[in-house]
Design a protein around this nucleic acid. Sequence first.
DNA 1: TACAATGTTTTAAG
DNA 2: CCTTAAAACATTGT
Length: 283
Amino acid sequence: MPELAEVELSRRVWTIAEGLTLRGMSGNALTRIYRDCSLATLKRGLRGAVLVGSRTHGKRMFFEFKGGITGKGRCLELHLGMTGRLTRSRTSSRAHKHDHFVLKTREWNLAFNDYRQFGRLFLHAEGFNPVVGLPMEVLSKGFSLAHMKAIQERRSKRALKAVLLDQAFFPGVGNWMADEICWRLGYHPAVPLGQFEAASVRRVSRMVCRGAMKHIADGNTEQYQEEVGFSPGNYVKRTPPADWLFRHRWKAGGACPKCSRVLDRGVVATRTTAWCSSCQVSR
DNA sequence: TACAATGTTTTAAG
DNA sequence: CCTTAAAACATTGT
């Protein structure tokens, strides 16, 4: 479920345990989640460690740990895939179905839950600097007009939506944000990137990323953290303003917030796509 | 039952 | 080399 803002929401769920020592861990070693890093490696690396900080980059999360039985800190990288989420609960509560591992402190259980198992995890050495080698974040200072023009040159013939979904160029943007950006630009998602004004693509994609953070991450942090059994799509119904395409694109028969025309649906860049054939031109 | 689901990677094909 | 399309992953809900 996670795009930029919900990844940030997920990160915040675990910050409750900052400064606390991991006293144990449980998990199911047999799932696909462990294709990059085994449960045994995870257990050995994190036992006795202290969570000292965290950050996100696009759809990735990085949790930094110090100490532990190895004496060396670790950086735990998580990706939520399509259906992953992070939860926290009191130590008295039992694990939920599809909790692949649970990090335990004296007072909290931090769980990684993902029923489709598309998520992944990596355990890096202490001091791993996640920013090096990763693409420029859309909301960072470096995402300049020159940077945008460079992207445009390298992918001028590709569909706008395809480039927006490419994590090497727009880290954190996912299917709904891509549709939102195309709609706000007033063009069909299949129009080649080369036909756009670089400044417009940059401005609108930054606006949508900022709005997602404001309306979804900042607007839901406490509720998200308290909610048990939070299900994908819940936040969709209650957060961003009604003049966002986001609020309408999910339901069959959803209407364009600008002109009220029923939204079109199809596949663009291999993903289900919603657009308004009246407000979005194909030229 | 069949299909789609907020993601990515791999493989195949042109 | 490039680009695009399709399949694969595993589970749930409509």
